[in-house]
Write a protein that binds this DNA or RNA. Structure first.
Length: 572
RNA sequence: GCGCCCUUAGCUCAGUUGGAUAGAGCGACUGACUACGAAUCAGUAGGCCGGGAGUUCGAAUCUCUCAGGGCGCACCA
């Protein structure tokens, strides 16, 4: 049980005991006061009861405090402050015993069950397989992966999913781009007479990662007809309706999918439980069936030769086409089928992580979800804001059209996976992020990721040193924890004790950045403590107690870093 | 034109259900190495929480309005 829960329960019991005649009482909420002199926890319950009971909040508070029955010895004492806050001060013994729990639970410390096994599907990245991942995708990946880890830790049953948009026009556009590059490889003069396809993908990867591979016959996943591509009349190379375009596009997409998954693997080992292909939804007629299902329910009508989803019935500002005049299905149609498939699997909650530029798309998908009878509040879209890379204090210019952009892999190669992950999680996901590449590489305290990892390495170093001096990490029985009586030491213990609550709050609010902030705050506290306090002293008992403390810190730091997919180095 | 998000210290940002004197980091300035990692630490300065109105015991937080910035408004994906 969380420390906070135990305290909440004690206060709740006292509230009931103080006012037994009241049928219903508002729940007790505890907060951590910003000001440390206001205790370890504070509650405003007396103030919220004041209007209901028509009494002075301070009187109510006094009564509640009087009726507190704390047999376990968690609460040292309470103070009534200001307009009627109850400030709660915990006993030092109770706090110190948290260290025992950390040493017992090790990597499990921080786990909780606020999720109650609720099944959650988190879909993230889902970048189109028409090009490499760029920095924006990297942020989505960092957020999604961390959220999945955090929610798992908090007791949710998490499924991680990637949706491949491997069908439609963009794949054919990729196909004509590939065909053009293949032709160019085979006939060096080709590009002089025929211009590059208008909607084509200009990036070098089309040439280097796809066309060269296919031209060499190296990919066998989807066979392409090289002879046909090379014998096409030159003006038809840009014809995206040609079968060769689709085949080459699919072959190229397969190659890109591999590259994307590899980049994610390199990014702190991001993997997925489920990968859903859009093409497959079409091939298995899931999309057609979903439209039929919507038709049966009366959500579809025909106008101007197209089929429309009546999304305005569900809060959208206009109805949306699902089947075009030419008989082809829209992207939305497939996406509805895709979400139906997820819902049919029975998830309690669906979380989609999208780039913020897709926000206009939410009402129609939410509408479709509501139309399927799913509670729309269980469908969450996290919109991840854009990233600006800075080098030398100046934004790095990127243009998707010309194919000049910095890929996620480039950033990983330059600053490392750990720093990239940390930087992507240094802000709330919904605020724009400035990513300073120079800062991310620095090995000084200015660089937050370094500063945090250094805390871990430093602790490891001290523990090694202690061991060399014949002071191995003591067991709980050999430690006199009451020697940890410095203010800094108790503060550090409080930090560690709050970790499970941080995880819980982070999971419930779906805000991974809270873990990053927690780590930075803890690092400040630790480095400061280290600087004014010697861990290894002539006093063996005191040294043992302090070693026990810093070993606890090490465990919590490692657990927190793991939640955001970052290594906890023993040496740097 | 309509819709969504944003505006907090010089810069980049936190601020959990509305709570007490609004917090960090960076940058700036002043200090600390016979040391378990100075790859660090201690201290100082810096604010009308974009403006205005409302809701209430109480607002950075909720509502309205105005200004400034970003992003969307396809039978594209």
């Amino acid at each position: 049980m969380l420390m906070k829960e135990s305290v909440t329960e004690i206060i709740s019991r006292s509230v009931k005991k103080s006012f037994p005649d009241e049928a219903s009482m508002p729940p007790v909420f505890l907060e951590r006061p910003k000001n440390r002199s206001h205790g370890d926890y504070a509650t405003n319950i007396a103030m919220t009861l004041a209007s209901k009971l028509k009494k002075n909040p301070r009187e109510i508070a006094a009564k509640i405090v009087d009726n507190i029955d704390d047999s376990v010895g968690i609460i040292d004492h309470c103070e009534i402050a200001g307009p009627g806050f109850i400030n709660i001060i915990l006993t030092q013994d109770f706090l110190r015993n948290i260290l025992l729990r950390i040493h017992e639970e090790v990597e499990m410390f921080g786990s909780g069950n606020i999720g109650c096994g609720e099944s959650v599907n988190i879909e993230f990245v889902s970048a189109n397989p028409t090009g490499p991942l760029h920095v924006g995708h990297g942020r989505g990946a960092a957020v999604g992966d961390a959220l999945a880890r955090i929610m798992s830790k908090a007791g949710y049953d998490v499924t991680r999913e990637y949706y491949w948009n491997d069908a439609g026009n963009q794949i054919r556009n990729l196909g004509v781009s590939i065909n053009y590059r293949i032709r160019e490889l085979k006939e060096p003069a080709f590009s002089k007479s025929i211009p590059f396809p208008e909607n084509g993908y200009q990036g070098d990867y089309v040439k280097e990662d796809i066309a060269e591979v296919l031209a060499a016959g190296a990919s066998t996943v989807i066979p392409i007809n090289l002879g046909k591509i090379c014998s096409l009349p030159p003006e038809e190379i840009s014809d995206s309706s040609a079968l060769t375009a689709e085949t080459s596009g699919s072959a190229g997409a397969k190659i890109m999918e591999g590259k994307i998954l590899q980049a994610l693997e390199n990014f702190g080992g991001i993997t997925f439980d489920v990968q859903q292909s859009e093409k497959e939804l079409h091939e298995q007629r899931d999309v057609e069936r979903t439209i039929d299902y919507f038709s049966d329910k009366g959500f579809i009508y025909e106008k101007d030769g197209a089929k429309w989803f009546r999304s305005t019935d569900f809060g959208d500002d206009k109805d949306r086409v699902v089947k075009k005049k030419d008989g082809s299905l829209t992207y939305l149609a497939a996406d509805i089928a895709y979400h139906k498939k997820k819902l049919d699997k029975g998830y309690d909650r669906i979380i989609d992580i999208w780039g913020a530029d897709h926000h206009g798309y939410i009402p129609r998908v939410r509408g479709a979800i509501e139309a399927m009878g799913f509670n729309p509040t269980k469908f969450n879209v996290l919109l991840v804001q854009m990233v600006t890379l800075l080098r030398g204090g100046k934004p790095v210019t990127m243009s998707k059209r010309s194919g000049e952009f910095v890929t996620l892999q480039d950033v990983i190669d330059e600053v490392g996976s750990d720093a990239a992950r940390f930087f992507f999680l240094m802000r709330r996901y919904d605020s724009q992020l400035e990513f300073d590449l120079d800062l991310a590489k620095k090995t000084t305290a200015d660089n937050p990721v370094f500063y945090v990892q250094y805390m871990h390495a430093r602790i490891c170093s001290i523990l090694r040193k202690a061991e060399e001096e014949g002071l191995p990490l003591p067991s709980f029985k050999e430690v006199k924890l009451n020697l940890l009586s410095e203010r800094d030491e108790l503060n550090l213990i409080k930090f560690l004790a709050s970790f499970p609550e941080i995880v819980e709050g982070s999971a419930m609010a779906m805000e991974p950045h809270r873990i990053t902030f927690f780590l930075q705050d803890l690092a400040i506290e630790f480095h400061s403590y280290y600087n004014k306090t010697r861990i290894i002293t002539d006093d063996v008992e005191l040294s043992k107690a302090r070693l026990y403390l810093i070993a606890s810190i090490k465990t919590v730091v490692k657990n927190a870093l793991t939640l955001i997919g970052i290594n906890a180095p023993e040496r740097m």
